[in-house]
């Protein structure tokens, strides 16, 4: 497969260049039908996320150095890259983690300035981050946690809070998405959960909160195949024409189960290449070095 390295996403030219790249990808995939009969890519669909020239620091060190990304409704994006490339930082910046400071650029989420919003307002606006390491909250039952979160979303939409009984009916329905037993609801949030159970619990939250944009930060790391299939199955079930998913991963294996429309490679705090799902396979077999080399060549050319 031919690969077009994305030009340096910098300054005025970057948006144009990036959209050219995406057109190319879209054409390339035009005649093919991804698994699960997903044919959701539609250039006219709503732009859910638009990131321009994003720069961010943590403890004074710049981690994101001019990141550009556009995500439309119905799309699944994968962001791959080596450790330290800034993938996880990007996910945390999107969710509004207080340790990360955005120093330049902008993020539009469904036409809103995301950077103006507090983390909980981002969540109720429709951003969902599935954590790489979901936190344990001893003493808070999963059921209570999910209900409080669900009601926070309802309140943000000026809807009445749902009562305990109606919520129980709702959540038990959602359990099927991740094949979780109802007994999980009465345990403390993530406490004593296995790695797989924690990740399934993240997807359960995603199923409940129905976000417009789900960012899955290394949700596949450390999962055995069965758990991976369950988690991927849940994500596929939840992805639809009105929402979008960004998968952040080290490993191509996840992308066998959740087929991305776009694969981006991150290095040194920006997206250096964008391709289709085959790019992930190439990365798996050839490593990242060749991409980095092509990128460097493009920079110097």
């Amino acid at each position: 497969m031919a690969l077009t390295p994305a030009p340096l996403p910098r300054g005025e030219g970057s948006r144009k260049n990036q959209s050219k790249t995406q057109n190319f990808i879209a054409q390339e995939h035009g005649g093919r039908c991804p698994p699960y009969e997903r044919t959701m890519i539609n250039e006219n669909s709503e732009i859910i996320l638009s990131v321009r020239d994003l720069r961010a620091t943590v403890d004074g060190t710049e981690i994101l150095k001019g990141l550009n990304l556009e995500v439309r409704a119905g799309e699944i994006h994968a962001i791959m890259g080596l450790n330290g490339s800034g993938k996880s930082t990007f996910s945390k910046v999107l969710a509004g983690h207080p340790d990360y400071e955005v120093t330049a650029g902008e993020i539009q989420f469904k036409g809103q300035d995301l950077l103006e919003l507090d983390p909980h307002d981002r969540a109720t606006a429709g951003i969902f981050l599935a954590f790489q390491y979901p936190l344990e909250i001893p003493g808070v039952s999963n059921r209570d946690f999910l209900r409080v979160a669900f009601n926070a979303h309802r309140k943000a939409r000026d809807e009445d809070e749902i009562d305990v009984f109606d919520f129980d009916d709702l959540i038990e329905e959602k359990l099927d998405v991740v094949k979780m037993d109802a007994s999980f609801l009465d345990r403390s949030v993530n406490e004593g959960f296995s790695g797989g159970e924690k990740k399934r619990n993240e997807i359960l939250q995603m199923a409940l909160l129905e976000p417009a944009l789900s960012i899955l930060d290394e949700t596949d790391s450390g999962l055995d195949i069965d758990a991976l299939k369950t988690v991927a199955g849940g994500v596929n079930q939840l992805a639809n024409a009105d929402n979008a998913v960004v998968l952040i991963t080290h490993y191509q294996r996840l992308l066998d189960y959740i087929i991305p429309d776009f694969v981006h490679v991150m290095a040194d705090g920006r997206i250096i290449t964008t391709g289709g799902k085959d790019l992930a396979k190439q990365l798996e077999s050839r490593g990242y070095e060749w991409v980095l080399e092509e990128f460097r060549a493009g920079v110097t050319a």
């Binding site: 909980h120 969902f128 909250i137 926070a152």
Partner: peptide
């Protein structure tokens, strides 16, 4: 823990509400 509060915030729960929830949980044990 700011990470715990952030986790709850990322689910739509405001920071003061998240703090109350965590304190409550700590006591309830």
């Amino acid at each position: 823990q700011s990470d715990e509060i952030f986790y709850l915030q990322s689910r739509g729960i405001s920071a003061p509400q998240a703090q109350r929830l965590l304190i409550y949980a700590f006591a309830m044990e």
